[in-house]
Design a protein around this nucleic acid. Structure first.
Lengths: 221, 221
DNA sequence: ACCTGAACACCGTTCAAGT
DNA sequence: ACCTGAACACCGTTCAAGT
């Protein structure tokens, strides 16, 4: 390996063969790239390292362990969330915010697979939480009820996000197989529900009505 | 524990050294035992096999692969759910049902870790889904709205279940560390929320009010 | 028919060693 | 200071072989 140049810690591209120096951001970016292009299961330390032209053990200088890498990848996603807002009722603005959150976390499928409801989100997206709490306050909720409402909204949103992978092409056979196993005579309503087309779009369309219903219930009492 | 049915092949206890013959149920039971006693991470094919006094490869005759074992373990839990009911409004009876579901899935911590919102639950607990759909119908909802409402309720419930592991002792340090990183001046409401004690009991108490709010929103419109 | 032994192709992680 | 090579202790899974 060539490396005789004695530069201090310059970020220069250097001449030809020298690799850019590793840092946390580049490791996280490489992890996201592998996850996006090859799926979450491809995100191994060896694979991410290869992506950077480096050996797996080199990553340990920058991330601690694999779990920390995944958390950092998630934080990276959360940081780039843009929270839309406009004139309107607090309820409408809350719908707007949670739709944006939902769509943002859905943009890269691997996100919904790493996401753990408590551990990885919530407080990490500080701006988002603060925004939501402010709107709930504006809607007339006190500290305690606002906090409960925030969690209810997040649990609902998280639940829906977790449901989406099952609708992806890989999950379809499992669902089809389930349908054949449900005894229609014993469970007529369930049979009717499963008979309805479980299109991805339908599930996404179902998110907002449920969100509105939840808000209706949370804000009126 | 299956009753001593006189089956075709030799199910005799045999004399002394002969191990009871393996079957799917015993493999699933062994998996649940290991998960309950040593946590989900201990559920490896080698460990489960050892629990049965057998080698890992012997399991493949009964479960296909590891994912199938986990699904079977979950189905086993779902099957033993008792759905309580009593006189009352559909709303009250729905709260009763979802509380029971919530408590049942919470009884063994590993369950919330394997649970995938779409893939593993929902239709598998046929009795439960049918019961809920019937109550929603009784409350005046048509097929389509009842199905949407069922999913909304399940997403909310699932989200809360997924949140609980973070409250377990192992997850606490992470939360404490988050608190110190949140800038109180920029996010005063978030800081107040995090300052409140995140006791496990509090989170469980928060489940029912949110559930009621969601139902309020779903049933009135 | 049911189970075993040995092997394969991976993991995350460690540690001493290189430069 | 930063990275590598080699090794460790695991995984899930396969396959031919035993009984």
């Amino acid at each position: 390996m060539p490396s005789p140049t004695t530069d201090s810690d310059g970020t220069r591209p250097a001449t030809g063969k020298r690799r850019a120096p590793l840092n946390r951001a580049s490791v996280v970016a490489a992890g996201r790239r592998v996850a996006r292009d090859e799926g979450l299961s491809a995100v191994t330390l060896r694979r991410v390292a290869a992506e950077l032209g480096v050996t797996a053990m080199a990553l340990y200088r920058h991330v601690g362990d694999k779990r920390e890498l995944l958390v950092a990848m998630l934080d990276d996603v959360a940081e780039h969330l843009v929270i839309p807002d406009r004139e309107g009722t607090p309820s409408d603005r809350l719908v707007l915010a949670f739709r944006a959150l939902h769509d943002h976390l859905t943009a890269e499928p691997w996100v919904t697979e790493v996401l753990k409801a408590g551990e990885l989100f919530g407080p990490r997206a500080s701006r988002f939480v603060e925004h939501v709490l402010a709107l709930l306050e504006e809607a007339g909720l006190g500290d305690e009820r606002a906090a409960d409402a925030y969690w209810a909204l997040w649990w609902y949103t998280f639940g829906h996000l977790s449901y989406l992978p099952a609708l992806r092409p890989e999950g379809r056979p499992a669902r089809a197989e389930l349908m054949t196993r449900v005894p229609a005579t014993d469970h007529p309503r369930l049979a009717r529900m499963l008979a309805r087309p479980p299109r991805q779009a339908a599930a996404e369309d179902a998110f907002v009505p449920g969100l509105r219903a939840l808000l209706r219930g949370l804000l009126t009492d």
